[in-house]
Every structure is written in structure tokens, then in C-alpha cells.
């Protein structure tokens, strides 16, 4: 009979706990939408076009556009604070 051996699992579970639930919106009408441009090519254009369409088609009250310095670093805390205070919804991007 084959010998049985014990070996350790080298992986680790995620330490971050689930965060508070996001706010669920009934509609976009009258809301403030924020964007964080991740600076990947073309995302600034998508932000501009979505902003116009969200206002014209879905009645969004206003749009706040902000940008990271470069894609591979986090947005500064001050920017996150500003958007979380002003906006009902914030949209950002990931990938090329």
C-alpha cells in the first residue's frame, strides 16, 4: 500500500472582508454620475460620450469627470472622497 504523506497548501485566502453593499438606484433620473478615467487609450472618449448620453437619454442631472495620473496606480484618497460625497454612482475602467 502506498505511503500517505501530509503536505501544506501553499495558497492563502483573501483577507479583505466583503464591504458594505453598494447603493441600489431606482433610476438614473436626477442623479449625479461620476467617472474616473483610468487613462487607458480611448477611455476619455467613452466617458465623454456616455456622459452626454446619460444626461440626454436617462435624465442624469450632472456628471463629474476625474482622471487618475496613470492607470497602474490607485486614485488618490482625496479624489475618492470627493466623488463619494458628490455622486450617486461612480464608474471607472479596467483593461486595454
Amino acid at each position: 500500500m502506498a505511503r500517505i504523506e501530509q503536505v501544506f497548501d501553499p495558497t492563502a485566502p483573501c483577507e479583505n472582508q466583503p464591504r458594505e453593499l453598494r447603493r441600489v438606484l431606482d433610476s438614473l433620473s436626477g442623479k449625479v454620475v461620476g467617472f474616473i478615467d483610468n487613462t487607458k487609450p480611448n477611455f476619455n472618449y467613452l466617458v465623454d460620450d456616455l456622459a452626454d448620453l446619460l444626461v440626454s437619454k436617462y435624465g442624469v442631472r450632472s456628471v463629474v469627470k476625474r482622471s487618475k495620473r496613470v492607470s497602474s496606480i490607485p486614485a488618490p484618497d482625496a479624489l475618492i472622497k470627493e466623488l463619494s460625497e458628490e455622486c450617486d454612482l461612480v464608474i471607472t475602467g479596467s483593461g486595454d
Binding site: R3, I4, V7, D9
Partner: peptide, 8 residues
């Protein structure tokens, strides 16, 4: 860390 039992 978890331990696994396996053929040695």
C-alpha cells in the same frame, strides 16, 4: 495553512 493528505 491547510494540510493535504496524498500518496507519498
Amino acid at each position: 495553512a491547510a494540510l493535504l493528505e496524498m500518496a507519498g
